[in-house]
Design a protein around this nucleic acid. Sequence first.
DNA 1: TAGGCCATCTGGTCCT
DNA 2: AGGACCAGATGGCCTA
Length: 172
Amino acid sequence: MKTKTRAARRRLEVEQDEESHSQQTSSEEDSVKSPAYRENRKNPEHIKSKKKRYSSNGKEHTIRRLESNERERQRMHKLNNAFQALREVIPHVRAEKKLSKIETLTLAKNYINTLTATILNMSSGCLPPVQEPASDIGGKLYQHYQQQHGDEDNEEHLEKYSTQIHSFRQGS
DNA sequence: TAGGCCATCTGGTCCT
DNA sequence: AGGACCAGATGGCCTA
């Protein structure tokens, strides 16, 4: 995988960097860093005031960094798993191509709106009286829906959702 | 080749 | 103090 190769390369660089840490020149290191990072390197006083933790030696810092990177990677993997799980429960027509993250979130939002509208449509006229405990769920759902959408038409969501599905299908 | 999407690294901030 | 979370930066891959 491309990214693992890159990560592996980076780890290798870090390991090599550890060995030559003391004699490393800042200029060659800075060439691969972000402008913000380079700026901080140019003005160490600025960064010193912000840094509260990395007062330990370079090797210790490097180890902690690698551990943090690993945790961050795991966190992002979990996030991606959640995205994948979401993709699998959203009906969409572009099955041959994976939905992007933004598409997934947008479709999910509209799918929820559509389901809510459908439920309200189905239960309209037969919602229990407000006093009954059983009305809580339906009542709250309706209340929440009204707060979110005001006078929007239920049909509108269905239309919006199906339009969106088709626009994704056409790749627009 | 430009633009979209993504994974990863990184430093700062928040939370426990 | 240390882990979780976040956002910016970077570079690779893919597609039109």
